[in-house]
């Protein structure tokens, strides 16, 4: 590449930078868009779900202008740290492991047991699981848990998206899938008996919170104040009940 083209590219970059500098006050919310009912792309092609509605309500409560950014799950923390967006709302459990790199707001969804599913009629003895293929979404609490508990004698297969674990389970390539109970419940109900819960429930990680960079103390305080107001007004409980089949209330007075 010669100097002129390099200069031209730098110029384009500089111009687009000036354009985006004015938008610096906007809060950018990162989400996955592939984890119904937390966050998903609906049939209108728009982002929707529990966290999308909650995030919009939160931004209204703290009088901030917000913008959603869709990012793949496996790079959602690195891209937060790199500054592509300011906060993560993507069904992310608060864990000590994650707290090493990012910080979390107060939870907006209490801890929910993780569960196993399998194709109907599958018998699995979870006390002595051996030679089985367990599907998890990569970089999740389930991936870490399954690796630690069953990794030695079983094969843990991790996928980019949660729905890919389902697809591979139904294709017969997996014996079981470990995921959030709240994610799996509507799937088991909607599968017309094809998929069933098996084995024990596991309590892994904490509740779900908003992930932020560690130096964003201002934003952290703002988000917590906003969440507290929405919990008090009953908005959070209302949205949980709406998206999670009447669950709760958890935060009401």
């Amino acid at each position: 590449m010669n100097k002129k083209t390099l200069l031209a590219i730098a110029l384009v970059a500089a111009v687009s930078m000036v354009g985006s500098a004015s938008a610096a006050d906007k809060i950018r919310l990162g989400t996955e868009g592939a984890y119904a009912p937390y966050n998903f792309v609906n049939d209108d092609g728009k982002l929707a779900g529990f966290e999308i509605e909650l995030g919009d309500a939160l931004c209204a409560a703290i009088k901030a202008e917000c913008e959603w950014v869709v990012n793949e799950w496996d790079s959602i923390i690195p891209n937060l740290v790199a500054g592509n967006y300011d906060a993560i709302m993507a069904g992310m459990s608060i864990t000590d492991e994650r707290k090493k790199t990012i910080t979390f707001s107060d939870e907006y969804m209490p801890v929910d047991p993780s569960m196993y599913i399998a194709a109907k009629g599958t018998e699995l003895s979870f006390d002595s699981l051996e030679g089985k293929r367990i599907g998890v979404q990569g970089a999740t609490i389930h991936a870490a848990f399954a690796e630690e508990k069953y990794g030695k004698t079983n094969t843990i297969k991790s996928y980019e998206k949660a729905d890919q674990t389902l697809a591979d389970l139904m294709a017969g390539n997996l014996d079981t899938v470990l995921a959030d109970g709240d994610y799996l419940k509507p799937i088991v109900e909607g599968s017309a008996g094809e998929i069933a819960f098996v084995g024990p429930q596991e309590t892994i990680g904490g509740g779900i919170g908003i992930g932020m960079r560690q130096d964003q103390t201002d934003l952290h305080e703002k988000m917590n104040a906003g969440l507290a107001a929405l919990k008090k007004s009953g908005k959070v409980d209302e949205l949980i009940a709406k998206y999670f089949d009447g669950k709760g209330p958890f935060y009401g007075e």
Partner: peptide, 21 residues
């Protein structure tokens, strides 16, 4: 194409279908 083909079991999300990728 990935998003459209992904299996969906929730009427809330849209058309319910299996793995159509």
């Amino acid at each position: 194409a990935d998003r459209l083909g992904a299996p969906n079991y929730l009427a809330m999300v849209g058309a319910v279908h299996g793995d159509w990728r």
